[in-house]
Design a protein around this nucleic acid. Structure first.
Lengths: 214, 214
DNA sequence: GTTATATCGATATCAGTATATCGATATGCT
DNA sequence: AGCATATCGATATACTGATATCGATATAAC
C-alpha cells in the first residue's frame, strides 16, 4: 500500500467532527484555530487533537495562534475524500431505508446513493427522492451499470446476511449495515455494523454508572 | 460505586451481539456452546469471548463442552438490564424520529419510548405508533409525569444542542443523539453520539485501504 | 477404564491509543 | 524593542484492551 501512514480508526472518527466545527467557525469569520480551542469545544485532549491534525495535514501550526481554519478544512476534506463522491446502493426501502434515501447530507460526505432495491413487489417502480426502487432480481444488472462499491443494508434482520452475501457477489466491497445483527464478511470486504443494540447497551451502562455515583 | 467490576465499552458492545446469536441457536435446540464456536461465528478471538463472558456470568464453563446456552442468555440479559425496561422520550418527529418510534425492537432491549415531541405545530396531537406528539412547551411537564431518564434526539443539526440542553434541564440523564453533530454534555450526563459521518468515514477509509491491497 | 483432546480460566505479554513532559518559537502586549 | 506566554511538535510514559501461553480438567472416543 505504497507509503501513506496508517491512521487509526479513532482518529478517523474524530476528523468529521473537527470538520463540522471548523466549517461552522469559518462561517462565523474565524481565521485561526488552536488545537486547545478545538479540544475545549469537544471536551477532548488538545494533544490528541494536535496529533490527529498532524496525520492529515502537512501544514504546521504556529505557536500562539494555531492553524489556519480554511487550510485545515481543505486538508481534512481532502483526506476524507469529500471532494469526489463514491457511489452506493441501498437495499431495503422500509422506514429507515426511505429516511436514508431522503437524507440530503450524504453528498457532502462524499457519498451518493445511485440505486435502491426491495423485495416487496408493491414498491417496484416507486420513486423515493428521485430514486426508483428496483426488484432484487435486478440487483446484479443495475449495480453493474454503476460504479457503486458500497452497499447500504436496511432490510429486516432475517434477510440481512443473505442480502449482504448477494451484494458481495455483485462486486460490492463495503457494507454499511443498519439491520439489527452483526454481519460477517470476507476479509477483502469492509464492513460497518451500525448496531443500535450495542450502542444502547453502552449508553445504558454509562447512565447506570453515573446514576450510581451521586 | 460499591463493588461491581468495571466492564469495558468494547465488551459491552459485544454482549448484545452474543445475546442475539445465543437466542438464535437456543431456538435451534442448542444446549451447550463454547467460546470457540461463538468466536468463529463472529470472527472474533475466542479468548476475548471467554473474557467477556467471565465478566457478566459467574457460571463457569466446562472443558470440552463450554457454557449452557440458556444460562448465558439469562446472565447477559440480566447484565444488560433487558428485564426491566427504562423509559425514554424522543424529540424530533421527522423521518428518522418516526422510524425509531415505529421500531418494535426497543422493548426487548429494555427501552420504552413513552413520549414524543416536535417543534412543528402541524404535528401536535398526531399519533405515531400510539405515541402522541407534544409541543416543545410541554417538554418539562410531560417528562416529569414519566420516569424517563433517556432522551433520544432526532432533530435537525441546528437545534440539536439546544434541545439537548433543555432535556438535561428537565432531568434527563442519558442522551442518545442521532443528529449529525457531536453533542457535548455535563459530566454527570451520559451521551452517545450516533455519528453517521464518523461511521461512514471509517467505512470509506477501510474500503480504500482494502482496495489498495490487491 | 483408559487415553486423547477440546475447552476452560488464570497469568503474562503484546499492541495500540491516549496522555504527559519539555524545549523551541512566533505572537501579542507593555 | 523586549518580555511573557500560548501553542506547537517531538519524545517519552502510562493505560487499556487484545492476544498468547499454559496448566488443569471434564468429556468423548475407544
Amino acid at each position: 500500500m505504497s507509503n501513506s501512514k496508517e491512521v487509526s480508526k479513532s482518529t478517523i472518527e474524530r476528523l468529521p467532527k473537527y470538520l463540522r466545527y471548523l466549517i461552522e467557525i469559518d462561517k462565523m469569520g474565524a481565521v485561526d484555530i488552536s488545537s486547545t480551542t478545538i479540544a475545549e469545544h469537544f471536551n477532548f485532549n488538545p494533544i490528541q487533537v494536535r496529533k490527529d491534525i498532524a496525520q492529515v495535514s502537512k501544514k504546521s501550526g504556529k505557536p500562539k495562534t494555531g492553524f489556519k481554519v480554511k487550510e485545515l478544512i481543505k486538508d481534512i476534506q481532502n483526506f476524507l475524500g469529500y471532494n469526489n463522491y463514491s457511489e452506493a446502493v441501498i437495499v431495503g426501502c422500509g422506514g429507515l431505508g426511505k429516511t436514508l434515501m431522503a437524507y440530503s447530507g450524504f453528498l457532502s460526505l462524499g457519498l451518493k446513493i445511485v440505486a435502491a432495491f426491495d423485495s416487496n413487489p408493491a414498491l417496484f417502480g416507486l420513486e423515493v427522492n428521485g430514486l426508483k426502487i428496483h426488484s432484487m432480481e435486478e440487483l446484479d444488472a443495475v449495480i453493474n451499470k454503476t460504479s457503486a462499491k458500497i452497499g447500504i443494508i436496511t432490510v429486516p434482520r432475517e434477510s440481512a446476511q443473505q442480502v449482504c452475501d448477494r451484494l458481495i457477489e455483485c462486486g460490492i466491497k463495503g457494507i454499511w449495515n443498519f439491520a439489527p445483527l452483526h454481519l460477517v464478511v470476507p476479509s477483502d470486504v469492509a464492513i460497518r455494523n451500525e448496531d443500535m443494540a450495542a450502542s444502547l447497551a453502552v449508553l445504558s451502562y454509562e447512565l447506570a454508572a453515573k446514576q450510581k455515583s451521586d
